[in-house]
Design a protein around this nucleic acid. Structure first.
Length: 416
RNA sequence: CGGGGCGUAGUAUACCGGUAGUACGUCUGCUUUGGGAGCAGAUAGACCGAGUUCGAUUCUCGGCGCCCCGACCA
């Protein structure tokens, strides 16, 4: 895409009312726009990254057999009353003109359970897993930390349905592995730990995926040796014994919860009458699990971890564009002709490139390029025209390489 | 929800009980062109309401909004 056509503009200064690094950077770079406290719009560059994150999550959910659907945002109070969750204070509620309340979905166990009850009747219908990637609304008493804790945010919620606890347990492990793959693929794998947290009525533990960052809200205790962590809310001798960890091996860290998986058991299937007939014709409640990742929070977390003092730094897998082609020419001159030709060559290969074809000074272009954070910058200046060698700069490391047109084309091909 | 702070051009900020200045941006012209250029000109602003006052952007109260700390976060 030609940057001259991009309607969003980068800003020199961060907005005064944003303190969090993720919001400051993303607003400055024109990735997001704040509508109100805790409510953000995703602009073209931001949406490209968000969609790539979502794409990775979708691939991993599909890989473990998840079936994608979209449930309604508007929620029927009846099913939430059945599970005794209509009175929670996280709800945004409104009323119908003809009378009666409805709510905006903040999670969707009730809805998916009722849907499942229309389609499951036999043990032969189980197991299965269904997920959606959808906006959630939570009436947070205090929105904070930029896009990481909003009142409106994107969520991937997967729900699994099983005949037995054993089957749930097995799927749960597969989901846990899929989650780890998601966090590795988006570039925060080394700092993200499977974290033991409170389990509720149907299992001893749930698992959170906690990314170590000073921007986090949770305190966890990391065992580097085991590669796991314990949420401070459940840290006690019994947990340490279960996990075979000595207390003095633990490292206290602040972390961001980027995912959570949870065994629900029959918490929802019983009140909502989701049952199946077993081999002997006996009706039994379906055993469920749920698995959440907030792609928008994940995006904020990635910014918190990877951005530097010059701006955003995106891993290849989720950058809006893989390359930032920066021309130092003026419209019509030799430099911009070479840059135009290179842009045509790159896009012709189906490679995503943001082309800074604007008539601006080099310093401004470089500073803005650093801010936008594409993984690689290709610079076309007088040098390139004279020598035929293009400068390729890796954003994360600042490492500069000179490449000929052919080398560059080969590199582009091998990278995808 | 408890506590604290803050609302001034598009953005970031300054001063002031007598209608507001700077920088960046934007627009025009000239010069410049490898790390946020220079000169000249132009553009554009006091969150809303009430009160005090001869006069309020400034002081007081209320509302709305934003941020931070805490609580909360199936």
């Amino acid at each position: 895409m030609r940057q001259s056509q991009l309607f969003t503009k980068a800003r020199r200064e961060a907005p005064a009312d944003e303190v969090s690094k993720n919001a400051q950077m993303l607003v400055r770079a024109g990735y997001v726009h704040k509508e109100m406290a805790g409510v953000y719009s995703y602009l073209p560059l931001g949406l490209r990254t968000l969609n790539k994150i979502v794409g990775i999550i979708r691939e991993e959910m599909n890989a473990i057999g998840g079936q994608e659907l979209v449930m309604s945002e508007l929620q029927d109070p009846a099913i939430w009353k059945a599970t005794d969750r209509w009175d929670q204070d996280v709800w945004f509620k409104t009323s119908l003109k003809i009378g009666g309340e409805i709510g905006f979905g903040w999670t969707q166990e009730e809805a998916i359970t009722r849907i499942a009850s229309q389609h499951v009747s036999s043990y032969r219908d189980l197991p299965f897993a269904a997920y959606q990637i959808q906006t959630k609304f939570r009436n947070e008493e205090r929105a904070k930390s930029g896009i990481m804790r909003g009142r409106e945010f994107l969520m991937k919620d997967l729900y699994s349905f099983h005949a037995t606890q054993e089957d749930l347990d097995a799927f749960y492990e597969r989901a846990k592995e899929a989650y780890s793959r998601v966090f590795s693929r988006v570039g925060i794998g080394e700092k993200t730990f499977v974290t033991f947290a409170s389990g509720g009525a149907f299992s001893k533990y749930s698992h959170e995926f906690q990314t170590v960052s000073s921007a986090g809200e949770d305190t966890i205790y990391v065992s580097r040796e085991k590669g796991i962590a314990i949420n401070n809310e459940v840290l006690n001798d019994e947990v340490l014994a279960d996990l075979g960890i000595e207390r003095d091996q633990l490292e206290e860290q602040t972390a961001i919860e980027v995912g959570n998986i949870f065994k629900l058991g029959t918490r929802f299937s019983e009140p909502l009458c989701l049952s199946y007939k077993d081999e002997s014709g006996v009706a039994k409640p379906v055993v469920m699990g749920c698995y959440g990742i907030g792609p928008t929070r994940l995006m904020g977390t990635i910014v918190e971890l990877l951005a530097d003092d010059k701006g955003l730094v995106w891993p290849d897998a989720i950058a809006p564009f893989n390359y930032h082609l920066v021309s130092l020419g003026k419209a019509g001159d030799e430099v911009s002709k070479v840059a135009d030709a290179l842009y045509t060559d790159i896009t012709g290969k189906g490679i995503e490139v943001l082309y800074d074809d604007r008539d601006a000074r080099a310093g401004e272009k470089f500073a803005e390029s650093d801010l936008l954070g594409m993984p690689y910058r290709i610079v076309v200046g007088k040098d390139a025209v004279a020598t035929g060698m293009f400068e390729v700069v890796e954003r994360a490391t600042g490492v500069v390489e000179k490449k000929s047109h052919d080398e560059l084309m080969f590199d582009l091909r091998s990278r995808t």
